[in-house]
Write a protein that binds this DNA or RNA. Structure first.
Length: 180
DNA sequence: AGAGCGATTGCCT
DNA sequence: GGCAATCGCTCTG
């Protein structure tokens, strides 16, 4: 699911009818057999409960005392599996993102997991939202995107265990990834 | 009950 | 390249 999400568009409807939209350009996969995952060894806690929920839901967690990270629940119900959204290329609603992010550099709006949630206004209240219903206030647009890009994979970022897995996926050459 | 640290970011030199 | 910010989750005793 992690590479499949590349090129798809994350959309947020704002009160008033305007929208935020950005193309997903970088993702990471996490699952139960994975020592870097919140769901390692199938352990359920109050924080990670959503990872074991229905696929297509939004799992948001708080980290480093100040940042939120957004994930797409990706396993069957009961399986602790999710895809971290690490970076996206802004498409629509840039001025609203600029305001939330306090910068007008488009490269700094959604290029990083904490930046992306801040630009989209996602936080603990967004937990459990349905990302696969286009009626949602926050969702991933349906329909297969153009596959006119190559996918690069490598070790995930910011972890100390599980570095043997190449479960970070980026659109090759895209300038909006969290790092070159 | 308390310590340690994290799926990060931004500002400093 | 280095480090502070900042707080909730997890593990240890």
């Amino acid at each position: 699911v992690a590479p499949d999400l590349l090129g798809r568009v994350l959309v947020r409807r704002l009160p008033g009818g305007s929208r935020l939209a950005a193309k997903i350009v970088e993702t990471e996969a996490y699952e139960e057999g994975d020592p870097a995952s919140h769901s390692f060894r199938g352990r359920r806690t109050s924080r990670n409960a959503l990872m074991f929920g229905r696929p297509g839901l939004l799992y948001v967690y708080f980290t480093y005392g100040m940042h939120f990270c957004a994930n797409v629940v990706a396993g069957a119900t009961g399986e602790g599996c999710a895809v971290l959204l690490r970076a996206a290329q802004p498409i629509e609603g840039l001025s609203a993102m600029e305001k939330r992010r306090s910068t007008d550099n488009p490269r700094l709006l959604c290029s990083g997991p904490g930046r992306l949630t801040q630009a989209f206004g996602l936080d603990a209240r967004s937990n459990g939202r349905d990302l696969v219903s286009e009626g949602s206030a926050i969702f991933i647009a349906c329909g297969a995107p153009a596959r006119d890009f190559k996918i690069k994979s490598g070790p995930r970022i910011g972890i100390s265990d599980g570095l043997d897995r190449d479960w970070r996926f980026v659109i090759a050459g895209n300038a909006f990834a969290s790092r070159p």
